[in-house]
Amino acid sequence: MTLEELEVEVTRLEDIQEIENLERIYGYYFDTRQMDKIVDLFSDNTESVEIESHGKFLGKDGVRKMYLGAVGGGARKPEDTAQSRPRGLMGVITVIIQIGGVITIAPDGKTAKGRWHAWLAESFPFGGVMGQYWLHGYYENEFVKENGKWLFKKLFWNTTFYTRFETGWLVQPLVGFLPMPGADSPPTAFYPYPSGYHFPYSFPHPITGEIDQPVFTYQHPMSM
């Protein structure tokens, strides 16, 4: 192996570690309500961001609408300066545990895709009443390396359940439908439990190399 080949290998390992950190840092910023810092984790050439049933938001403007709007939960106010402390809301927590990153770097080393679980413990005044919630979903995110730094290019969190602590996913898979104003389109694949939806994997099979081509026919709950 030449020094050049070795450098390629080391760069690939570093790229995976950088993207692991980027994803985790996203979660910590969300947890600590530093939504303006989240916006800066996205490329200016962002494709889209889609979370839960909020709808799909396009481009960097869409990123701002998503994180500085309702999802931000009042993280920033117009009177805040860049130096202001992050604004927490009494009783609101969003613990986003990001698990199981499988990251695939493109051969050219300039883009990447990654799948994670996100498991959340949340408290939020849903409908004006403070509640405690368990959430689960899968991320399939895309990344781009610009000027030597990895950034989000696309973020998609596909919800499995959003349930009350007191009931659980079997009894109440979804506490409600939460569309956000200003979305460019409705949610593109919002099929929580028990739909049986298969959110496609970005990675090929490690041994056979098979590309994921899921067969899924969504049945509306009312037609089941």
């Binding site: 698990i99 689960h136 359940f161 049986g196």
Partner: peptide, 13 residues
């Protein structure tokens, strides 16, 4: 097809 309503989420930690 798998029985409707089966949920399996097993984190590998």
């Amino acid at each position: 097809p798998r029985r409707p309503g089966i949920l399996s989420i097993l984190f590998q930690l």
